[in-house]
Computed example of a mutant assay.
Amino acid sequence: MIVTLTTNPSLDRTISLAAPLQVGEVQSALGVREDAGGKGINVARVVAAASRPTLAVLPLDPRDPFAGALAATGVPTRTVAHDGATRANITIADHAGTTTKLNLPGAAFTEEDAAALTAAVVAASEAASWLVLAGSLAPGLPVDYYVSVIEAVRAAWGPSAPRIAVDTSGPALAAVVAAGRPDLIKPNDEELAELTGRGLDAELELPDAVARIARRLVPASVAVALVTLGGDGAVLVTADGAWHGTPPPTRVRSTVGAGDSSLAGYLLAETTGAAPEERLRSGIRYGSAAASLPGTQPPTPHDLSTGAVPVRLLSQDNPTTGGHRD
């Protein structure tokens, strides 16, 4: 079972254009689609589409029309009553796959709301293999909210607690890395650079530069880092090594949710006991498949490219072992 938490879900509206976005001009759209989104929900949708057990935990006002869009996904959910409509995120995608996003703020949380959501996550995590904490924190939640969730889950379930994957950015990610000891983080290259406070070495190839700064975190503070690089694939860094994978040829239609699909693909492979290289390949295949689909449509196994995903071992800068579970 892969459980996900989304504190700030969204109704994702994707508008498709035939030409590049022209700011200040009037343009006709080819179409629009709406998806129940939010990073944790996106991960759960991919896992469910692969016919694997999952449960998405999220706050929801029972009167919110978002409930209908969420139910239509078919993803098992555990909702916590919360006043306020789910936010809407708007994505404009042109024919070349270039996307422009407008993310609106969500409904604010009180301390009581936060406590209720934490309790729901703890209950849902019983016997789960992974707990995915994903997305921005809803307004009103403290910057270390994910840390408090991790502590509550581990205190409740002890040695049988699920492993923790975190996909967020900025201060929330920094707080998790500083105090949460997560089993996996999934930043992109820019988020990783911000997290470590170190720019990417321009004299190195991007994958090598990413692996070098990720090694500052793995395994001392984080067990594994899966760093997505968009069209350049992804880098996986563990205590035992670092690998770079290159995606298959992909016609990009929308990059929204591609990183979430990469995380889901990695976890789907990890839960079968796959080797690091195969986990990385699976993550890249799922991310590329998501980018080839409109909106935040989750890829199914049938959407995965059969093209090659070359994976190479990167040079290792003093890797060490121990400290976390891989």
Score class of each variant (00 low, 15 high):
residue 4 T to L: 06
residue 7 T to P: 03
residue 10 S to M: 00
residue 12 D to T: 09
residue 27 Q to M: 11
residue 31 G to H: 00
residue 32 V to D: 02
residue 34 E to T: 03
residue 35 D to G: 12
residue 40 G to Y: 08
residue 41 I to Q: 01
residue 43 V to Y: 00
residue 48 A to Q: 10
residue 48 A to W: 03
residue 51 S to N: 13
residue 55 L to P: 00
residue 60 L to M: 09
residue 61 D to G: 12
residue 61 D to C: 12
residue 64 D to C: 11
residue 66 F to C: 04
residue 66 F to V: 04
residue 67 A to P: 09
residue 69 A to T: 10
residue 76 P to V: 14
residue 77 T to C: 13
residue 78 R to I: 10
residue 79 T to V: 15
residue 88 A to R: 15
residue 90 I to N: 02
residue 90 I to S: 00
residue 91 T to D: 02
residue 94 D to S: 08
residue 95 H to T: 14
residue 101 K to F: 08
residue 103 N to R: 08
residue 106 G to Q: 01
residue 107 A to G: 07
residue 111 E to M: 13
residue 120 A to C: 13
residue 126 E to M: 13
residue 128 A to R: 08
residue 129 S to F: 04
residue 130 W to R: 09
residue 130 W to Y: 10
residue 130 W to G: 08
residue 136 S to C: 11
residue 139 P to F: 11
residue 140 G to C: 12
residue 143 V to I: 11
residue 147 V to E: 06
residue 152 A to C: 10
residue 155 A to S: 15
residue 156 A to Y: 03
residue 157 W to N: 06
residue 157 W to C: 12
residue 161 A to C: 08
residue 164 I to W: 05
residue 166 V to M: 11
residue 170 G to M: 06
residue 170 G to R: 10
residue 172 A to F: 01
residue 172 A to R: 02
residue 180 G to Y: 06
residue 181 R to P: 01
residue 183 D to T: 08
residue 190 E to M: 09
residue 197 G to C: 02
residue 200 L to Q: 07
residue 206 L to M: 12
residue 212 R to V: 10
residue 213 I to C: 06
residue 216 R to Q: 11
residue 218 V to D: 02
residue 224 V to I: 13
residue 228 T to M: 05
residue 233 G to Y: 02
residue 237 V to R: 01
residue 243 W to Q: 00
residue 246 T to F: 06
residue 246 T to R: 14
residue 250 T to V: 15
residue 253 R to I: 12
residue 258 A to P: 09
residue 263 L to W: 03
residue 263 L to Q: 06
residue 271 T to F: 01
residue 273 G to N: 12
residue 273 G to T: 14
residue 275 A to I: 11
residue 275 A to E: 15
residue 278 E to M: 15
residue 278 E to Q: 15
residue 280 L to A: 12
residue 284 I to L: 08
residue 285 R to E: 04
residue 287 G to K: 11
residue 289 A to R: 05
residue 292 S to V: 07
residue 292 S to H: 05
residue 293 L to Y: 01
residue 295 G to Q: 03
residue 303 D to T: 08
residue 311 V to C: 04
residue 315 S to C: 03
residue 321 T to Y: 01
residue 323 G to V: 10
